[in-house]
């Protein structure tokens, strides 16, 4: 029997146990413990839980769908390989984010001398689901006829102009909504440095997006 199919049985058993009121954090730690014992189905659950956020991090760091896909997959493979060494000193969430950030930063270092790229065509932009954003684009900008796609492109270009350190904190805080303390743990810096980087990154972005700030 395929190991992943076999281990699905134990994962389902645990899933039914946990569905009776255990909170998300303890659920994750249960999956982690099972995965550390080699249970691929438990790891499958962990991947399913974090894949969108990890993909999002990689995408906003690179503005490139294919690269983000590759980097996010690589993050989960690295995490699987290193899972036995995970001591639980930090949360699994923090730990895997740290792997993802380092994977992205290594990738960007290798690509530093290449022309920045954007690959937005195959993404699914659905602004109508967010009324605030619809209002932002249709009413409050001086370029009311501008398409969302253009705004999206300008945003991504501005993000790529940021240094990697600044882009990381903007991605984690402004886009993914992580608090300063959590970002500090992920990046291994103090919260004051996170705030400082955010401040300078915001100043730069406001300058580059001045058309959209009025």
């Amino acid at each position: 029997m395929d190991p992943i199919v076999e281990s699905t049985v134990s994962a389902r058993t645990l899933s039914s146990r946990l569905s009776s009121g255990a909170d998300a954090v303890s659920e994750v730690s249960h999956w982690v413990r099972l995965a550390q014992a080699g249970d691929l189905a438990a790891y499958d659950r962990l991947v399913a839980q974090f894949r969108e956020r990890i993909y999002g991090l990689c995408y906003h760091m690179t503005s490139h769908h294919e690269d983000a896909n590759d980097l996010a997959q690589e993050t989960f493979v690295k995490a699987w390989q290193a899972l036995r060494n995970f001591k639980g000193d930090s949360g699994f969430y923090t730990w895997i984010y740290r792997i993802a950030v380092n994977t992205c930063l290594n990738h960007l270092k290798l690509r530093r001398n290449r022309t920045p790229y954007l690959s937005l065509d195959d993404l699914d932009l659905q602004p109508e689901s967010d009324p605030d954003l619809v209002a932002l684009v249709s009413d409050k900008t001086p370029r009311r006829d501008a398409s969302l796609a253009e705004l999206q492109r300008r945003l991504n270009e501005a993000m790529l102009k940021l240094s990697e350190d600044h882009r990381t904190v903007v991605t984690l805080h402004d886009i993914q909504g992580l608090p300063h303390d959590e970002i500090a743990k992920i990046l291994g810096i103090n919260p004051g440095t996170v705030r400082s980087r955010l401040f300078y990154a915001h100043q730069q972005l406001q300058g580059w997006l001045s058309d959209w700030m009025k």
Partner: peptide
């Protein structure tokens, strides 16, 4: 503006 990027999903 940055929240708009949250909508960029595959």
């Amino acid at each position: 503006l940055l929240r708009l990027k949250r909508l960029e999903t595959p």
